[in-house]
Amino acid sequence: MQTSEYAIEAHGLVKKFGNFVANDHLTFDVKKGEIFGFLGANGAGKTTAMKILCGLLLPTSGKIKVAGFDVYTQTNLIKKHIGYMSQKFSLYEDLSIEENFRFYGGIYGLSRKQIAERTSTMLKKLDIEPLRKSLISSLPLGIRQKLAFSVAIIHSPGIVFLDEPTGGVDPITRRQFWEMIYEASEQGITVFVTTHYMDEAEYCNRVSIMVDGRIEALGTPGELKKKFDATDMNQVFLKLARKAG
């Protein structure tokens, strides 16, 4: 199973809530190490699909594998092999940096030694070693976001899911964050990311755009701009999403 070249394989993913079809036959693959942007308007069905891929919600039908595991029967294995970060919730504010690393490392079953090593490596990389014992609540937003990402990959997952990770930060911090994403991808971690910043869509290797529960476009940013005769991803998005409604 682990030999597949794909981190995510979704074929005909359907999710219904009563009569409402939140996800309507989504079919897409995400290659290992790829940065995949998952875009769509508010209410298009992104969160539902993301929950299914994270093993938190069962689909109605479809054949879906994440990190080689089945989303119907192997959700616990999926959870072990993925990382997750969102803007809304990521770190415990009244724990220190070190305690957050120890907590999440513990949840993912890392040994004390592994946790200590990875904590040191990441703090060194972010150049914030003196802040080791600082409470998360005392840190600026930019540092928190970089830490949250570091914590989300502390167990070296095959895939990391990022749910609108960069909201509200300054443009320099946002770029430092994307550099971290590129580095993770370089190390073979697959990155699945949602964002409302259309310029960020252009950082992705490939993007899909959801409209009313369906994937209406899928390709590299360059391909989509060409196909929709647009100068940037914002125009592509507006052309697609405005048709809906």
Binding site: A41, N42, E164, G167, G168, F237, A241
Partner: peptide
């Protein structure tokens, strides 16, 4: 416009 999608923003 924080947190709203590109269409609503426009």
């Amino acid at each position: 416009t924080t947190g709203v999608d590109a269409v609503s923003r426009r």
